[in-house]
Amino acid sequence: MIGPAVIFDNVTLELGGTRILDHVSFRIEPGSLHCIVGANGGGKTSLIRALLGQMPHTGQIRLEGEHLGPVGYVPQVLDFDRNVPMTVRDVMALLTQRKPAFLGVSKIHHADVEAALRRMGVLEKEHRPFGGLSGGERQRVLFAQALEPAPTLLILDEPCANIDEPGARIVEEVVLELNAKGVTVVWINHDWDQVRKLAHSVTGINRKVLFHGVPSEVLTWAEPKAMAS
């Protein structure tokens, strides 16, 4: 299995009269681990949501490849209503199965859901109310749901934002594992050291594409100057 290529072709995105993305074009190779970096408000989340078909835009966004399987998505914020009585398990059931979640996790998914929660180190929290989890715990559950069903394209919007050091290491490991199996990874990441260490390619975005290439080449000079502009 090798995940799809992602092609952004002249993507322009306007919301409420402001141009958030301006003729953005770049290509993410099949099966690569690609990071997107850039200043707050630079349009990274918007770009990803355009990729998911959730933002009106001009230009084209294409997935190319033989395996256009499930897309795993970890959103930047999970604003689940804290008032809805749901355990972690309920949330996983809600997200991964058709059988009504109030009837429990279906048998087919049970092992996979448990494996995903265990992988993220939150299996022992599965009966806790989701709304009562800490920010980092919730982020871990959110990451776990993206692993089920097994994705061919994994889209991560700052998955480590609230996560502690051990958690961040788990995320790293899981991403590398999946990528080794051929999964294409698109990862919005503010941690440049991590990007240098892990990514095959990186794109800097602030409304426009600031730079694009191999981290060791583009991240060296770009950091202070391009980010400031």
Binding site: R49, Q54, Y73, P75, F80, L94, L95, A101
Partner: peptide, 20 residues
Amino acid sequence: VPLYNQMLLASLNPSLAHAR
């Protein structure tokens, strides 16, 4: 019955629901 999860998810987190 068949749409309960999707309906609930659609209002809990439309973005995640759409991605799924």
